[in-house]
């Protein structure tokens, strides 16, 4: 955590709020697309900075191994490539869990569709 406050998350949060409330309504039509992209990028960054629960636990259970999410993800990829999960019923729910965890950051609305 930064000694100085607000931290990165706090700054992004208030920058996004100000952008949405003050600037966005005044943006001319031809600049609306980049403006919306800026709001989208900031909101992804804000959620990422909040730090969401990763899929590490599900990966540990599936592989029966210890390690952080990145290490375990790499091991799972290698196992999939080798065909060790061909026809497995246990893999799909874990893939969903990984995907949901990432969507919570990148686009939570997509999950409700």
């Amino acid at each position: 955590m930064s000694i100085d406050q607000p931290d990165a998350r706090g700054l992004v949060e208030i920058a996004l709020k100000t952008f949405r409330e003050v600037l966005l309504p005044a943006v001319p039509a031809e600049q609306r697309f980049p403006a919306l992209m800026i709001a989208n990028a900031l909101s992804i960054a804000e959620r990422e900075l909040k730090g969401a629960a990763g899929p590490a636990e599900a990966l540990r259970r599936l592989l029966g191994e210890e390690g952080d999410a990145d290490t375990l993800s790499r091991r799972l990829c290698a196992a999939i490539d080798e065909g060790r999960f061909d026809g497995s019923a246990e893999l799909r729910p874990v893939l969903w869990e990984i995907t949901r965890a990432r969507l919570v950051v990148s686009n939570p609305k997509y999950l409700q569709k």
Partner: peptide
């Protein structure tokens, strides 16, 4: 990315 993203690895497989 296919070496660290299991969904992608699974899809390709």
């Amino acid at each position: 990315v296919a070496e660290r993203d299991p969904v992608l690895a699974y899809g390709l497989r």
